Simulated assay, not measured.
Amino acid sequence: MNRIPSSATLLMSASLLLGAGTAHAALPAEATLYKNPQCICCDKYARHLEEHGVDVTIVDDVSLGQVKKSVGLPYGLGACHTIEMGGYAIEGHVPFAALEKLFEERPDTDGIGLAGMPIGTPGMPGPKQEVWNVYQFRDGEAQPFMTL
């Protein structure tokens, strides 16, 4: 039996479509990525952000240790680059789903990160080989943020 969608169904469909578009709108328009000059995977991560509409400034002539210290990154949870974006620090090859969650929820935290350089994450070659535990941090202390 063919049915004509009710106005409630049409309204809900429109809301879902509009909601899907707001996830990207929540991301900041600009980011600054701090890295070592020789690190190619960091450049690939910057391109990943740019593909999602973020204008990325790359800074490769700064002490990464000082940057990580200034954003309050917990010891031992570093990665190859640190990003400042929308009032948060983003450490490493954080998957886009975690960035979307961060900027949709805007938790009271200094930032989020993914330690190391896991294979399969944005900017890192190869297929995903493990669960990615993204953490959030505040005042040098880490807590779980999400698992992907």
Results as ranks from 00 to 15, higher is better:
M1T: 07
N2C: 02
N2L: 08
N2Y: 07
N2I: 07
R3K: 09
S6Q: 06
A8F: 10
A8Y: 07
T9A: 15
L10H: 02
L10W: 05
L11K: 14
M12Y: 08
S13F: 12
S13I: 11
A14K: 14
A14Q: 13
L18G: 11
L18M: 13
L18F: 13
G19T: 08
G19S: 14
A20C: 11
A23W: 04
A25M: 14
A26M: 12
P28K: 01
A29L: 10
A31Y: 11
T32Y: 03
L33G: 12
Q38V: 01
C41Q: 11
D43I: 10
D43W: 12
D43H: 14
K44Q: 06
A46K: 10
R47A: 13
H48S: 07
H48K: 06
H48M: 07
L49C: 13
E50F: 00
E50N: 12
G53N: 05
G53S: 06
D55F: 02
I58W: 04
I58L: 14
V62T: 14
Q66R: 15
V67P: 11
S70Y: 02
V71T: 07
G72F: 09
G72W: 08
L73N: 05
Y75I: 07
L77D: 02
G78H: 04
H81Q: 08
T82C: 11
T82V: 01
I83L: 14
I83C: 09
Y88H: 06
A89K: 02
H93C: 05
H93P: 03
H93E: 07
V94M: 11
V94H: 09
P95A: 00
P95M: 01
A97L: 09
K101M: 08
L102T: 02
F103M: 03
F103A: 01
F103N: 02
E104D: 10
E104M: 15
E105D: 15
D108H: 04
G111Q: 03
G111C: 03
I112S: 08
A115V: 01
G116F: 00
M117L: 13
M117H: 13
I119T: 15
I119L: 11
P122A: 04
G123I: 07
G123W: 13
P125Q: 07
K128F: 02
K128S: 09
K128A: 10
V131R: 12
V131Q: 10
W132F: 14
N133T: 04
V134G: 13
Y135Q: 06
Q136F: 04
Q136L: 01
F137R: 03
G140E: 05
G140C: 04
G140N: 08
G140R: 00
E141T: 00
A142W: 05
Q143Y: 05
P144Q: 02
P144T: 00
F145K: 00
M146C: 12
L148C: 08
